[in-house]
Amino acid sequence: MYHVVHTTYMKDEFGDYVRQRREQLRTQDPAFSVRGLAGRIRVEPSYLSKVERGETPPPSEATILRIAREIGEDGDVLLALAGKVSTELQAVIRKRPTLFAELIRELKDQPDHAVLRLVREVRDGEW
């Protein structure tokens, strides 16, 4: 079942970003042609081409995550550019919606280093 929430996305922003990144990589490796990348993410080259040109909405979450892995980008960043939130994050928010809504609003204008302080780190002990 398709669970991704569609929010507003800047038209072409996702496609532009993917195309620019793919073309950068293609200067180093011909495997990053439209056909090559499409084959690896299991879509038709014509479909990928339309996505890159913004002629069709961004693909599914699973396909976006495959694109992210291939072009070496963060999956959450690409999902955000596509105006989506991952199924995993939705599940997290749905468990405690009020708490997370409040937390996100509180943090929205905080600098990165302040937000990073909330990230759970692996604890080091005595050894």
């Binding site: 759970r120 692996v122 604890r123 080091d124 002990g125 005595e126 050894w127």
Partner: peptide, 20 residues
């Protein structure tokens, strides 16, 4: 997994070391 998440089940020494 974080060792801290299973504090009751892992040896005390693991908690002392921290980590995963």
């Amino acid at each position: 997994r974080h060792v801290d998440d299973f504090g009751r089940e892992v040896p005390e020494l693991w908690l002392q070391h921290g980590g995963v």
